[in-house]
Amino acid sequence: MKGNEALAEAAIQAGCRHFFGYPITPQTEVAAYMAKRMPKIGGTYLQAESEVAAINMVLGAASAGVRALTSSSSPGISLKTEGISYIAGSDLPCVIINVQRGGPGLGGIQPSQADYWQATRAPGHGDLHVLVFAPSTVQEMVDLVMDAFDMADLYRMPAMILADGALGQMMEPVEIKERPKRDLPEKTWAANGHENKRPHNIVNSLYLTPGDLEALVKERFERYDRIKSKEQRSESYMADDAEFIVVAYGASSRVCKSAVKAARAEGIKVGLIRPITLWPFPTDAIQEAAKTTKHFLTVEMSMGQMVDDVRLAVNGAAPVSFFGHTGGIIPSPAEVLGEIKKLAGGAK
């Protein structure tokens, strides 16, 4: 299955029946798949007039308590940021997919990871975070979309899948497994018609009294703290006895896995930590590794964005280097191996 199709099918399996989108390479197959499937299962597929409209339709659907999805690629996500901020400010759950391409501006259409800052720092204006998941295989596209819907509902906030053009376009085998249903809170806040049986609900993000707004944002940040302590996820690969650690996510982590394997074959004690959640960032795993690691290397398809979070987690305990390509170029395993060798110096 193609990565983009896997994202779409996973959302349907997760119970999402409302998709609002606007075509953009390299994520168009998500919308195309939804256009085909949704009418057959009684769902809504709507191609909006723009990305701005699509995210506001998500806001509307999420207000009514249903699982809603939108997807786009980098320039389109920028257009959605206003809506994402409103959704976060209204404490609504939804899932947003970003199949990243080169930027800034219209950039290019080849794979990129240059929206890390946007996703983890400023997915919209105001004090806010969204959950950010970073799949690295087509199978994970499926698993993480399902997790994203659950987590969004659990914490009443938007969740983003931060993929890239390579993952969206590639095909790999996938298994769509029945999953145990997670215990999720009832959506008592939904504005879905009260039939005079309860007081009406209001979905809103406007608070003109500074004290009210501050209290609400503080409550939200307490929730963010709980998420940071409970929901960090990462995968360690050959990292147990490693003197050097490569940190990479998504498509570039696959390249790094190949490079780590090659370096191990040459006797270099190197491992990989692959963040699966980018927000919350797996600070704990990296902090723990920093106790025994001589040198970290962060590899990204950008000029170096996640490396900031790695440095914050390492907190000076070891040097942190960066290697990457941007503009739509995927680093090669040989290049990463070269960088690992530079770190390792003569030490074998």
């Binding site: 295989t137 390579a166 790999e172 498509a251 696959r254 390249v255 190949s258």
Partner: peptide
């Protein structure tokens, strides 16, 4: 084995 980089250079 699980495939690392899917891009064949």
């Amino acid at each position: 084995e699980p495939i690392g980089s899917p891009q064949v250079l």
